[in-house]
Design a protein around this nucleic acid. Sequence first.
DNA 1: GGTAGACCTGGACGC
DNA 2: GCGTCCAGGTCTACC
Length: 314
Amino acid sequence: MPTITLPAPADFVLHRDVCSYGYFLLAPNHWDPATRTFSRILDLDAGPVRVAITQPGGKGSALRIATSRPLAAVEKHAARAQVSRMLRLDEDRDHARRFHSLDPRFKKLGRFRLFRSPTLFEDIIKTVTSCNVTWTSTILMNRRLCECFGRGGAFPTARRLARTAPALLRGRCSVGYRDQRIVELARLFATSRSTLAARLEDPSIPDADIRETLLELPGIGPYAAANIMQLLGRYSHLPLDTESVRHGKTVLGYSGSPRQIMKRVHEHFAPMGDQAFRSYWFELWEFYEKKHGPSWTWQRDSTGKMFTAAQLSK
DNA sequence: GGTAGACCTGGACGC
DNA sequence: GCGTCCAGGTCTACC
């Protein structure tokens, strides 16, 4: 099998940094706990390719990317770029230092990277499919999106979804009333990619302006906007949802209405400033891992389907 | 600015 | 196997 290599930052640990956010459990992503291999289909210009990523040399060593077919030089470049985005290889020691100086609890484990998708569009659609549904439905929607509309099992591109009838999307992928919103989002990214995506990924634009832009998009409310912001590497806002309320009650000991608890959770993490989300998230993640063991041991079809609090309470 | 109700689906539950 | 209820953010209408 053809392979390419990708240098990793000195503190990078594949199993820890892949299994750091729920999206590693969503199609087309696949994590094999037994071999500690991350695999998925990437959609490259010349066609889809399956990649299987390992880190044979352990912490800080280069990543080995096995590909299902030989790649031309330009494709290797594109594959490396997509993998780098997914694994946040651009976040280096300075990011870790900044976060761990504010919240030293996670320094020993070295946690600060959060897994994301190879493209911003996939991150946004994954966020939309996680709104107002249980986690098992999110899993199902993403699987069907890849099966029905992705080239060779890849996540569908904006261009593909932009020319999909909403009713077809609903019928095949069980996305419900999100059908129209997903198609509208796809059209925005397919037709104005150069402006919208570039704006959202422009680090020189202040958080408040990015948030405002996100809130104008169909299907994106306060929760989704904050989540997309962390996926963009902006950690100042908290995506507060029912999980946050559960966390506020059970871990932080708050009581009151969901609204009151959310407000207190927000205030609790406010001192972390631009690192608030990382502090919040890894505290939440630690809670899940106490219940189910390290996230890199979770089986996609068992633990991976029921790690959230709603399932835990049953 | 705050709030009630509709939007869909899968899963749990009772019969 | 069927019907009912519930969980889950966003959006719109209304106060």
